[in-house]
Design a protein around this nucleic acid. Structure first.
Lengths: 235, 235
DNA sequence: ACAAAAGTGTTACACGTACACCCATGG
DNA sequence: CCATGGGTGTACGTGTAACACTTTTGT
């Protein structure tokens, strides 16, 4: 079969917006770019797509290179294609956002990339259009998490309801009523109560919970309305 | 500046999923492909991205070529990148979905492409991964329209509430209570009642309405909950 | 007069929200 | 024994769904 002629070829890349949560703040994993242009500047982890792989596969490969993690929650965000977004040559980049358990990451990190976690709210300037990608990812995360239980992806296996609430408060930059929050979450039947309590964060201690994985997967696309008045919070 | 070396270049394309509504059924605009491979088979309207244009610009150009319409509602759906999705050579394609007023289209259509409207439910086999694109577009449309008032984009300037209801019923393949529906829609304050009635579809006649464009744009991202129990309908 | 669709009124009820209050524990 | 955060009980109001019923008009 002959090739399509007369059309310019270009490079395809992927960039990963990697979110993590340390129990207090929402964080973003960035690397110090190791090659020109913009060498030594902060950047999303990314890379070019190989000849024989899909974008999804490339994104997973790149995430794995940096974090050593597989099976992580990741979804395609958008493809960015401004003709001059990369000054070296025409490159379109498909952004993926990933939610990882920050503690899992600590164990397996690859130090070759000089990666660091930054507070999402207080991140450095990023190269190219990466800041635009991060802003869009944040918007999408807010949008999605208002209705679907994806934020569990950011938490360890065992977590408390106050921890989960703190995460929601971080994401939406708001305060929630703890009494209503716990009831709402428990009413989804997604959580399984554990015997032990977490005593680090309060005197009384809060019970640990684990995700009911089966129910989680089954209800993933269900609408949960976890955020009061989402339209006022999602801008 | 030197080029990035050692990375394979590829072709970037866009494909447009174009939805229309004739008052009764949800339709899809397809073209008969004019070149090999798969010449004469049904396909989404698409094309390669030019050297100096973004994907968005390419999608708008391609939509304009076929329909003669500009300023149409369009959003990026997803980028499809299976290495062998196009048998000729490696091509990644970004799908956009567009909502157009089918009557506007009739006026300006470009006949060079042998385009035809098909019932979405009863469409022919499509080339490559185009069917997958359509299915995803349908899913996204359902998802979005359950909460945001985007379906107005499919209707003419003046329309009746029963028409609008019929559109929702088509999209979600369900029956809605007309009494509750009209109240819900009117409570959004998005509609402006006209003096005349449409007498074609009933003896009593239904009042025409127009969109309050200002309010529409302001409320676009608001959550409207127009579909009861969306989680049961959105699969 | 009747059928058929548009539209109004009314009601029951689920759900979200607010908040008083109780519980458990470390200092 | 008190301060602190975790968690339950309950009351109130809004919004949604269900449905009886009225309106309009072409045949």
């Amino acid at each position: 079969m002959t090739k399509y002629s007369g059309h310019k070829h270009l490079l395809a890349a992927v960039d990963c917006i990697i979110f993590g949560f340390d129990g207090y703040d929402l964080k973003l994993l960035l690397i110090k770019r190791g090659f020109d242009p913009e060498k030594h500047k902060w950047s999303l982890m990314g890379g070019f797509v190989n000849d024989d792989e899909s974008l999804e596969k490339a994104a997973n490969r790149i995430l794995y290179q940096l974090t050593g993690l597989e099976g992580v929650y990741m979804e395609q965000l958008q493809t960015f294609s401004d003709p001059i977004r990369d000054p070296v040559e025409r490159t379109i980049s498909t952004a993926y956002f990933a939610l990882i358990d920050i503690h899992q990451y600590e164990k397996r990190i690859n130090h070759d990339y000089n990666a660091e976690w930054f507070l999402l709210k207080d991140r450095p300037d990023l190269i190219f259009d990466h800041d635009q990608m991060v802003r869009l990812a944040q918007k999408r995360l807010r949008y999605k998490a208002a209705m679907h239980p994806i934020l569990f992806e950011l938490l360890p296996d065992k977590f408390t309801i106050p921890q989960l609430q703190c995460l929601y408060e971080e994401i939406y930059d708001t305060k929630l009523d703890n009494r209503n929050f716990s009831r709402k979450i428990l009413s989804t039947q997604l959580l399984v109560k554990q015997k032990e309590k977490d005593k680090f964060n309060s005197k009384k201690g809060a019970f640990y919970y684990k995700l009911n994985k089966r129910k989680y997967r089954a209800n993933f696309q269900a609408f949960l309305n976890l955020i009061p008045n989402p339209d006022k919070l999602l801008v």
